[in-house]
Structures are given as structure tokens and as C-alpha cells.
Design a protein around this nucleic acid. Sequence first.
RNA 1: GCCGGGAUGGCGGAACUGGUAGACGCGCCAGACUCAAAAUCUGGUAUCCGAAAGGAUGUGGGGGUUCGAUUCCCCCUCCCGGUACCA
Length: 870
Amino acid sequence: MQEPLSERYEPGAIEPVVQAHWDDDKVFKVREDPEREKFYCLCMFPYPSGRLHMGHVRNYTIGDVIARYQRMQGKNVLQPMGWDAFGLPAENAAIENNVPPAQWTRSNIEYMRGQLKRLGFAYDWDRELATCDPDYYRWEQWFFGRLYEKGLVYRATAVVNWDPVDQTVLANEQVIDGCGWRSGAPVERREIPQWFLRITAYADELLDELDRMDDWPDAVRTMQRNWIGRSEGLSIRFALNDASVGGLEELEVFTTRPDTLLGATYMAVAPEHPLALACAENDTALGAFVEECRHQSTSEAVIEKLEKRGMALPVTVRHPLTSEALPVWVANFVLMSYGTGAVMSVPAHDQRDWEFARKYDLAIVPVIADAEGNAPDVTSGAHTERGRTINSGKFDGLDFAAAFDAIATALEREGRAERRVQYRLRDWLVSRQRYWGCPIPVVYDNEGNMQPEAADRLPVTLPEDVAWEGVASPLRSMPDFTATTLADGSPARRETDTFDTFFESSWYFSRFCCADNADGMVDERVDYWMPVDIYIGGIEHAVLHLLYARFFHKAMRDAGLVKSDEPFKRLLTQGMVCKETYFRETAQGRKQYFNPAEVDVETDDKGRVIAARARSDGQPVTIGPVEKMSKSKNNGVDPQALIDRYGADTVRLYTMFAAPPDQSLEWSDSAVEGAFRFLKSLWRLTHEHVSVGPVDALDVTALDDALKDLRRHIHETIVKVSDDVSRRYKFNTAIAAVMELVNHLSRTPADNAAARAVRQEGLDTVVLLLAPIVPHAAHVLWQALGHDEALTDARWPVADENALVREAIELVVQVNGRKRAVVQVAADADKAACEQAALADDNVARFTEGKTVRKIIVVPGKLVNIVVQE
RNA sequence: GCCGGGAUGGCGGAACUGGUAGACGCGCCAGACUCAAAAUCUGGUAUCCGAAAGGAUGUGGGGGUUCGAUUCCCCCUCCCGGUACCA
């Protein structure tokens, strides 16, 4: 039984009904079916922060449009959803509101799940998972054991940010201007034992595979290549001139430019380097400098922007070729965690070395010629290009490769160097000194010897009922958790560190394939679904998450758990959602931000924004830049309020229409109104059409020119939208094309049987093309248009080739590259006919008269350019 | 600092492989309907000159390649993302 279509478009009335139908009939539940082509569509799962933000809405709408489109192609589509549930914000909420992180997280999940359902996403909810659930994390604990057996896990010390007041490790984000964000105390660097995964063992495969990942954006592949940073160079040992200092006899460095070795004029070591520490012991000034460096942040972004500073150490090294004594400096920009913590400096050919040499008046010796073969000018900066060697004695006159080889060979013969491949990529530090994460499944005996927890004793369950005192992880002070026994019953102590949350997000996509498996990490179903056909998420994950996930998947492959080499066949990176900011400066010089919803904007008679006032007091506020929606800038727009007001379809339509997925999107409330208006007018047009009654079958031979044009437009739109959705992922232009078609349909009168038949075809097409984007409205309109099958079972339309044929086309005519006319020619007009039609135009004649035509360029079907002598 | 990306009307954006710059939408202006408002509909809307036809200028700035450049190359400015413990 079909109900008549209501006259008004009321999303609040129809959307819950359509959603209930999807839910009750489990329309989006999928099973493995080897007979059918599968499509695994995945969006990066959310951190359950409290409420959905616009970034989520955008991400999940893009995924849903692709999933629903693939379903209309007849594929077996898996689109799951889950929760990246461990993380720092839950601990912050616990500290602030005294709510246990587990409780806070689970209630956030409840609320956000309701919001996702209200947006009508086509998820198979039976596969839902949360990473804080022991049924999930027990398997990564189990896999950690497998990695340990394979030698891919090790323990070593690493530097962390230490808050001396709160007695806790701080994340880089929690260090503001060198101080702890809560205590305000200057942060110290501290070396503590940490757990690492040997991702560098996979560096070459992670790098080489990128060349074959053609369905990933080039930008992401380039960023990952640069991050891995494979370089071939020479590891050189410089002998110390002074007898053993701090137990050291030589200084080892790695360089990719051994051809510049003769230009090395000094060495630089990290403040934590044993040589620097040894020298600092007997020198108060040096000691003070090293101590000062100990308060420097561990973040690369901060360190690299610091003023480059250093101090000379009271030691020199011997140049391995010339035996010249080179001074050794300690410098704040050399990092102990990179390579050997020491570098050789060639100021003539490295800009950073050059600046340091200038500042401290160290020698600058050019040893590479410029393009003309002359000594380069190094008075205003380093000469960094490769070239032939000069000032290098017997190594003079060689190009890069020859100089590299000659110098490497000479040093190797003396046992002072080896050729080496080095990576910028460092091993993955997976341990965190935090509570709200997956416990690292390791125990220590009374002697401090560690061993992984036995597989049959997993999971190591995180206690969820915790009392929070202070800011440090409560795990350490929970004897019920820390006290345990070994297999032989002897007393032991549990590891209290937890995993980096990237651990959980590195394999959840495989778990979605078999989320209900209680007996193993994954099972054979993973072979049906993996790899993910398209993975959609923010560009900010271009390196870390996406590189860790690739590594983890390969490690799982080598453990025989999955078959694919790469987890994500195609990657779509989404831009940010932005909004203008409004603020006032307070007396202390701080910015007080106003939410756009609390601000009235004044415009001039052209719609230009000229001023803004706070609604609360009517006083002016400063209009700031457009920035990513965030709590700190108070420029977030709550999706819930918009869903309540306009319905899910309008919010979905607007987010898809406002910008292409990979660009940032600037939110505009009035443009949302426009999306709503479009749905209302489509509804009205359909209502008007169906209320007249049944439509005769379409007779394509009985159409006049106007109806033929309209019909061609219908089928051209199918071609355009299909290409936009399936190949280009440009939903904004797809929607624009549908809007144009709807405009054309409503402008063309439907006052006879032929016209009504074309309108029916047009409306059927529009509803099918919009079905993935506005599925609720489309569902109701599809029924109203007389279709018995559910829209979720309908097929994507295919254009009628005959309807696409054109008899005449428009040709642009340029004279010397400037457009002068548009002329009509037959669709099959040859070059001569195009030239003739172009030259015959009156306005073209005005610009060619009395001048010599030198050349005529004809671009078939598009343009004629007549080149004349001026 | 380094790596990656971006900049087009008042605004979001379009122009896909070097071929009509500004599709579509918002906003704004004018008009229709209305007692009025909302809603809806019609027309206009890059800038400058012009009644119009049409012309000139114009895609962050400067240079180059080309018959032709938003698109390709070189230099620069500003903005955004990442920078290994935010996720």
C-alpha cells in the first residue's frame, strides 16, 4: 500500500520512519558471499569525544555516499562503524569532573551512536566495536606476544617531557611554551625505559610499495616517502685527538655528502651526547648550557625553530683525510635520537651549518664548484647543489658519484668508515605512561626480568573502576592490578604502561570483517573483505596513522593472519571543516572568542561583511580569520541543531555540495538554507507531477526539439554524475549538475502526455542520482513516483546513447587568443567547415579585416583560434 | 626549520588532458504575490567604459614557455596540515 505524497517536505516526519525501516529490516547487514563482488567502504572511526562535530558529519557522509553508490552498482557492500575509544581526553575529563574514563567514554559512545543513526548512515551495526572493550584489545595483546617472538619488540630508553610538579609524563600537546599545561612548571627532558616496535625492519617494503599504490593521493605517498627518508651515505669515525674523554675515543657521524668531507670544519654533538656530558662535568659554563638544553621540548617543530646555539667543547677530532684538528661543539639543534647524536658540519655546503659557522665565526671552506666550475660564492649563504670537487687535494675534479666513491673507498681501506643505508624513520615507541589505554601484556619477576604474559592468561584487563587522585596514571598505585604471579606461582609485577592508541587503530579494519570471533584475532572472513576498497579520513593522518596501519598489516600478514600486502586499496583524504572566528582582546591581551551563533553580522548593500556585534551586549567584536572548527576558537557549529532544524538529508546535501571532499570546507548557515530550499522545490515538483495521475509510456519518436533537448540533458546528467561520483569523487559538481537538470525540468511545461513522460524519466533519474546523498527523501519520492522496489535495491541509471546524440554544436571563435564570437556548426563539421564558419562571423571579421591571417588553429568540437598579423 | 597542500567575484566553489574564467549555490539589488511579513516566483549581479552592441581589465605578487596559461616552468608572499606522547 502506498500513501499519497504529502504536499510539504517535512524531513522531521519522514526521516525517522525511513530509518526505522532500514533498522528493522537490517537492510545494511552484510554476509560474505563469494558469488558477489565485494566492496569494503571504510571511514576512519571516531574518537568518542562527546558529540559529533562537523568533521565527522562530513567524513561519514562522504563514506555513505560511496557505499550507497556501490550498492546501486550491485556490489556486496560492507560499511562498518566503531569507536577509537582509548585516549587522553577521557583522562582529562576524569581529572576535571571526577568521572571514570570508562564511564565517560561509554556514555559518549551511546550519545554519538544515536547521532550517527539520526544521520541515516548505511552501517552494518552488528559489527560495531569499541577498542576499550577487552574482547577487542585482548587480541592486540596476543599479537604483541607474536611480535615479541619474532624479535620485532624491544625495550630501550627514550626521552620524554617530564612535569616535575605533577610527577608525570606530558604529551607534546600538553607542553605550552616549555611548561606543563596544568602545573605551569618548566618541563624537563627525562630518559625512561620504553617499548618499541621494529617498524624500521619494514622500511624498505613500506617505501617500495608506495610506488605501486596508484589509488592513493600523490601528496600522501610523497609525505610517507619523505618520512621514511631512505638515504645512502657514509658512516665515518673521527678519532679524538685527546686521549679518551668520558670513555670515548672516537666520534661517529653519518653523512649523505661524503663528497664534501674536505669542507668539514667542525663537529657538532647533541647536549645529551656522552662527550658533551663528560666535558660538562668539569666546566660550569658548559654544564649550565647542557642543563639549559635539558629543558628544551622533545618536539621537533619546537626544536627546529629554536635559535641555533652552541658552545665549544675542550676537545678536537682528527680529520680522517687531512689529520687537521677540527673543533667539536655542543649544539641545541642536534638530536640524540637521530642517528649517532653527532654530525660533521660543512658550512660551505649546508645552510644550517653555514648559519652556525657565521654566528660563531667558524671556518667556511668551499669544496664543491658552482655550475660554471668556479669556487662558489659562500658569503651570503651555503652552496647546496651538487657539483665537481675543488680544494680537495687528490679528490679534486670529481662529480658527486665519483667523489662519493673515491672518498668512501679511501676511508674504508683505513677502516674509518662504512657505506650505509639510513632511514629517517625511527622505530615506533608504543608505550605510554597513561591509564586509559590497553595494558601492555608484560610481567617482571623479582629480579626485574621481564616476559610477555602467556597467551592463555589474556586479556590483561584494565581495571575500569578507578579513583583518580592527582594527574598521574592510577594504575601504579593499584596493587590488585600490579601484583601477579608467574606461571610457576612465584610473585611478579605487571607492566603499568599502556599502548599508544595508534596500536588499536592499526588493525580495527581487519577486525570489522569478523568482529564476533571469540577464538582468534581474525578468521578467514578477513580474506573475503580485505583490503579495504576505499578508506576515507582526514589528511592530518597522512603519515602517522596510515604508516603504522600499513606496517601492522604487513606484520599480521607475516604472522599468517591476513593475505593482502596493503590494507587500503584506495585512499580519499578529506579536508577540514572551517568557520570564521570572532573575538575581543581582554585587558591581559588574551583573546576571548565568541561563537558565530552568538554574533550578528552587518553587511553593506553588496552583502560585504563590514562589522560584527555580540548578541549578548550589542558591542562590536573583531572578525578573525576562517579557521578549523575547534573548542579553543569557539567557532564550532553543532550538527545536532542543524539536523533538528533541517533534517539529516539537508545537512548531508550541504556538506557534499559546499566543497569537494579533499578541500577544506567553509561552513555557511545560509548556504544550508539553500540546500533545504532545493529539496523543497524537488519535492514540490514531484508532488505536482504525481498528483496529476499516471503517466503514459515514453515514445522517444514523438518528441519535439525542446523535449529532445530536455531528454538529452537527462542522459548527459547521468553521464556527468556517474563520472563525478565514481571516478572523480566530486560530489559538489554532481549535485550542481542535478540542480541544473531540476531547473530545466521545472522550466519545461508538462502539459501533454509526451512532456509528462519525459518529466517522469527526469524525476526518476534525479531521485536515483541523489539517492546516495539524500537517501530519506529519495526513498519517499521513489515510492511516490510509482516504484514498488525499495530504493536501496534499485540500480544506478545508465545513459541512453541515442538520447546523447547532438546535431549542432557551439564553436568558440578567437582572434589572437581572444574570444570574439560563438558560432553554430554541424556536430560532424570538418576543419575547413569550422574555419569557414568562424571567418564568416561579423564580429570576427571586424578583427581580421585588413590583416594577414598567419595561422588558424582548430580544436575539433571546441574552438577556432585565428592568428593574424597585428 | 623541514615535508605536504592551498590562494579564482561580496561568499562557498566551477573550469577534469594547455582551449569560452566565474557553472551551481549563497548573499545582495529590483520586481511580482501579500493589509503586512514569512514562504514562493521572475529578472539582474566580476571590475571599469558604454543606452546597447561591444570593448578593456581580471584567477595571491613578479618573470617565462605557448597561437592560447587559473592549468606548465622559475622566483616570492601569505594561509593551512604534519613534524613521531592530540587523535
